[in-house]
């Protein structure tokens, strides 16, 4: 474990807490894409298939449980909670996320470290997470008013992957023959997809104005 990875995991945890706070306290999921939340639930399910077979550490297991539990809770809130679901904008959240899943699955079957079920699922989860934010970014373009919590949620979600890249650089430098191209490339694509959001988020912070993405 290194400081980059610990900070990254805490940032990821913070993003989930911010979203759950928004949904649980003000009972609203306005501006949040259910498609992205469903993709994240799939990402964690496919990535943590080893939760019962490979014990790494208490930290690792506890964090896996937290990410699985919170991602499914958020999907449940947005789909079935009688108040929260009313603020879900299904007419705007129309990204066909199945078109993201199929190419990622095919790619995982073709490019992986080991052709076993768990490993292909693990690889699929990285390719899918790289593009999982797309429905959310499309929804942001469409909904004009982005509230602070939504902006903070997306910022933290993007920042965690950027911090993981620092972790991967650190591990590559300090650990002999630590090479994992699949997470590295996926993580790089994922972070780059947040590029313009980070730019406009920084501008809104610097000019102290509301976050607005260009149409």
């Amino acid at each position: 474990m290194n400081i980059f990875r610990l900070t990254a995991d805490m940032t990821h945890l913070m993003s989930v807490i911010v979203l759950l706070l928004k949904i649980h306290t003000i009972k609203s999921c306005a501006g949040i894409s259910l498609k992205t939340q469903e993709l994240y639930a799939i990402v964690f399910t496919c990535r943590y298939l080893d939760i019962f077979t490979d014990f790494i550490s208490f930290y690792n297991t506890i964090m896996k449980v937290i990410f699985l539990w919170t991602s499914f809770s958020i999907v449940w809130y947005m789909r079935y909670h009688k108040i929260v679901r009313r603020s879900y904008d299904k007419d705007q959240d129309t990204f066909r996320h199945v078109f993201l899943m199929l190419p990622c699955l095919v790619l995982a079957l073709l490019i992986n470290e080991r052709f076993t079920f768990k490993e292909v699922m693990w690889t699929f989860s990285f390719y899918l997470e790289a593009v999982a934010i797309l429905p959310q970014l499309v929804l942001l373009q469409r909904t004009r008013n982005i509230d602070n919590l939504t902006g903070q949620y997306i910022f933290l979600l993007g920042a965690y992957r950027a911090l993981y890249i620092l972790n991967w650089i650190y591990r590559y430098v300090t650990e002999p023959n630590y090479v994992h191209w699949i997470p590295w490339m996926s993580g790089l694509v994922q972070t780059l997809l947040y590029g313009d959001f980070f730019y406009y988020y920084f501008l809104s912070w610097k000019n102290n104005v509301k976050l607005q993405l260009p149409a």
């Binding site: 790494i56 896996k64 993981y164």
Partner: peptide
């Protein structure tokens, strides 16, 4: 065959 080391990152 040697068991590959598990993925240790989240």
């Amino acid at each position: 065959d040697v068991k590959p080391e598990p993925h240790d990152e989240l």
